[in-house]
Design a protein around this nucleic acid. Structure first.
Ligand SMILES: [Mn+2]
Ligand SMILES: [Mn+2]
Ligand SMILES: [Zn+2]
Ligand SMILES: [Zn+2]
Lengths: 142, 142
DNA sequence: AATTTATATTATAATCGTTCTAAACTGTTG
DNA sequence: CAACAGTTTAGAACGATTATAATATAAATT
């Protein structure tokens, strides 16, 4: 459990004013035991259903993107119409369950280190991401 | 170099009528020495600039999606606003050059086999994709 | 070959997630 | 407090994609 003052500092330290809306979003995203994945729509719904304060959609977009730019969120794109944000900002890979549309974090005992033998000349690797799509066994069984 | 009749068979065999538009798109996509990556926009531009026949945008969308559904194209999503199609339908991974916005195929002497030690129980792996983002040494370091 | 039926193409409208706008509001600084 | 920069907001605008429904074409049937 974080204290509100921690979020205030976090925001101030990154040049973002600790507004009521940003603090509420911090609380929803970061005041948890476990990291999680969400879409903009999930977040907007979560806030409007569970809190009396209403935050405009534009602010939700702005804030999520600001948090992403500051490195507090990662974005994971699954397909052209499905983009998730991740509160787990460590380097890690994902399973994507095509049946449930859920993203699941991998850790190192699930996917070994990716061995990049040759990189493009003159370029630096900025990220390495593995996405393993999975689906129910029973689809191709009979 | 493929013959037109090969595309006719290919289309017929997959239950798609070999229309003039689909054959033109086959020619543009598959009558090449090397596979390549393209966006819908690239393809539409290519056709309108290099050929006198005009194919409506709706048909280009329909055809590309039909070809994807039939397994003649793969879709690779880079970010929420960048989706590419790939005429290379073999299993392979990609470098994405953030400076030039170009996708580059990897082969096995660039990225080793991804070691998936544990899969989700009761699920079958439908694909494994690695995306290595690269950028010029002097910028964009994460 | 003509007719019938199913499928495909097209221009254009509709959709919808996201971004923009510009006015009102709030946090910060002195 | 005053002054200012940064933020929020509702609603408009945007743009990529999809839906529509009339027309055209391909295939199947007679
Ligand atoms: Mn698509
Ligand atoms: Mn985004
Ligand atoms: Zn994650
Ligand atoms: Zn490729």
């Amino acid at each position: 459990m974080y204290k509100n003052s921690e979020f205030v500092s976090k925001l101030r330290n990154s040049g973002l004013r600790p507004t009521k809306q940003r603090l509420k979003i911090c609380e929803v995203l970061f005041n948890r035991d476990k990291t999680f994945h969400f879409t903009i729509n999930d977040l907007a719904k979560n806030i409007s259903e569970n809190f009396n304060e209403k935050i405009s959609l534009a602010t939700i977009y702005n804030t999520v993107h600001a948090f992403k730019d500051k490195g507090y969120l990662k974005e994971i794109t699954i397909s052209s119409d499905k983009s998730y944000f991740d509160t787990n900002i460590t380097k890690h890979h994902h399973f994507y369950d095509e049946d449930t549309n859920l993203l699941i974090d991998c850790n190192d005992n699930e996917i070994g280190k990716v061995n990049i033998k040759n990189n493009i000349t003159g370029k630096k690797i900025s990220s390495v991401e593995v996405l393993v799509r999975v689906a129910s066994d029973t689809q191709n069984q009979n």
